[in-house]
Design a protein around this nucleic acid. Structure first.
Lengths: 349, 349
DNA sequence: GTGAAAGCGCTAACAC
DNA sequence: GTGTTAGCGCTTTCAC
């Protein structure tokens, strides 16, 4: 389908099962039995097989296994370049949970410059993955899901919802995360708390805004439009610009809640340029905890319970493999507030 | 070998070649011919095959192809969690170059908490990858390379050298990168330029230190031990600590060259706490350009020519597939200085 | 131009 | 307890 210029692979001295069988003087069936720890094998035969495996450094050909088992043992993880390290940590969490079920996790990374989604989904389908996790910010269409569904490959989306029957979603409790963060400002004494967030292109953003609003309302603070800055992307420059606008407003906030560490990083840049100090002049909080530790000063942030994510992903996939017709599920993962001293009592000016 | 609790996969309605062949009323051989654009196929048959492929959304089973071709068409990319986004960008670059050769890139990510290297290499070997790229900070042993070598899987290490015959290395011109960065300080008027870097656990670090020294020497500046801070890791906290020491020294530097953005981030934290401004009080430069844009203020950094990396990786692998006995090669990739105004003339105090 | 058929390395059902 | 064997889905040689 494409004009590939494959190189031919050199000598293929690869050891196979039959080599192990011969060496151990048994059949391949017996080798299989010891490899998969099922069925009866005499101590004696087992010993010989194990020795042969070790001697030849034998590792089974996954393609062949996949072919006969009608199952690759692979969970695909679709990620996108340049979204900080949160997805890396989520991916690690999925790996840990997947291993316990005998699954491997393979990552395919979309590039920023391209719309790689379809390409990568096709690659995954080619691999006949047994399940797919989609981590953050990937652009999907129904057709892509149709393909996946036709092969009954379970799909779990993390931190993004996509309304397609049978596609399970994992969401972080961002309404609560935002609420808690804003409450920290309130409890520290802040009464004018600004919100810097991205356009609600996805559910997450709306939830963070909702949490912010609920915290204000709960504390009988007015929702003021000029305290709410909605920017087009998470890029730091937009956080900076939003902060600059806040600095120029007639009625400045004392607390700045950002729905992303990157936005907070930008806000800090604006404060830096303006000669304002954190937390002396302004208190601030980020979100996602990907960058906040390295900023000047390190700032408070909100992080999902990452350990949990992997477990939930894998269990959702497992359940749907068993029963593809399960109704769509949405699971919520708790968030944790990380404190670094960037929220203190406001200065009375 | 492990006690897996695989779930059984449900109905496998997966379309296969024979289904396409039947639909198009040809043989599987003909389907193969049109799929791979080789051999003669009549316009008529080709049309029907293409229609059938489209109709069924047919995607060949990679495992089966891999089995018959004795070649997976996969380049493995071994990365490690939590090293910022440089590896993500390198990986993208490799993808772009690999695609042109008909290869796919599959990433396996090592977790921080574990020594995953062996596990992941085994997984790659199981997949019978045709080549392996190792990107940054992975701990290797000769045994691991022995395994890879036994299967004649070409290995390219990026940004790290490992002295094993046949393992090719890609290094960034870090001696020059560091030299250039330090020269920027000099040209701006700095005469006391500090170095904050990691222990030379790998070649890269030594090169960065060498570049620093060469720049000083070239400009007839003395190498002063108390201006050179060697810390145990790239973590921001060490950059901070080193900067604090520099602030307390009797003869403070005016320029701070850090061999990592993370170290620079830490140095900025120290300056922030001390109430010092950049570039008014100190000029500073980071390295790797992973974080520098988001710091307060954004700082100068040094970045490798990322586009090039992928091309070189893939060509090295290709050449070694053709000829596994090539002698070990080391390729150098140029670095580029990124300016953001964090280096200016020093204040005369 | 096109098809038949022999594997690729492994698994699993079945026979012994 | 252990071996035999028939596939898994695809590629590729060799006939026709």
């Amino acid at each position: 389908m494409s004009s590939m210029t494959y190189w031919k692979r050199g000598s293929l001295l690869s050891i196979k099962m039959i080599d192990i069988a011969n060496e151990a003087d048994v059949s391949t069936a017996t080798v299989g039995r010891v490899l998969h720890e099922k069925g009866y094998v005499s101590q004696d035969a087992r010993k010989r097989v194990e020795a042969a495996v070790k001697k030849f450094n034998y590792i089974p050909n996954a393609a062949a296994r996949s072919l006969t088992q009608k199952k690759s043992g692979i969970i695909g993880s679709l990620v996108i370049e340049n979204v900080g390290n949160l997805y890396q940590r989520i991916n690690s969490s999925v790996m840990t949970a997947a291993e316990k079920q005998g699954y491997h996790v393979v990552m395919l990374q979309g590039r920023n410059k391209y719309r790689d989604e379809e390409l990568l989904i096709n690659q995954f389908i080619g691999m006949r993955i047994d399940g797919l996790v989609v981590i953050t910010n990937i652009y999907f269409t129904d057709e892509l899901f149709d393909k996946l569904k036709a092969l009954s490959i379970p799909v779990v989306m993390v931190e993004r919802t996509y309304d397609y029957p049978g596609v399970d979603n994992i969401l972080f409790l961002d309404e609560k995360g935002a609420y808690d963060a804003v409450m920290k400002f309130y409890k520290a004494g802040h009464r004018r708390i600004a919100f810097i967030g991205r356009e609600p292109f996805a559910h997450v953003e709306q939830m963070r805004l909702d949490g912010y609003k609920r915290a204000l309302t709960y504390n009988k603070l007015a929702l003021e439009d000029d305290l709410i800055k909605i920017v087009p992307s998470y890029a730091a420059e937009f956080g900076k610009k939003a902060m600059q606008e806040l600095l120029f407003s007639s009625h400045m906030p004392t607390g700045i809640f950002c729905t992303a560490d990157t936005l907070a990083a930008g806000a800090l840049q604006a404060l830096y340029e303006a000669g304002k100090k954190v937390p002396d002049d302004f208190s601030i909080s980020g979100y996602d905890n990907i960058l906040s530790k390295q900023l000047s000063p390190p700032i408070d942030s909100v992080e999902p319970d990452l350990e949990k994510v992997g477990e939930v992903v894998v269990s959702l996939i497992g359940q749907r493999i068993e029963n593809p017709h399960l109704e769509t599920r949405i699971k919520y993962i708790d968030t944790v507030s990380v404190s670094r001293g960037s929220i203190t009592a406001p200065n009375n000016k």
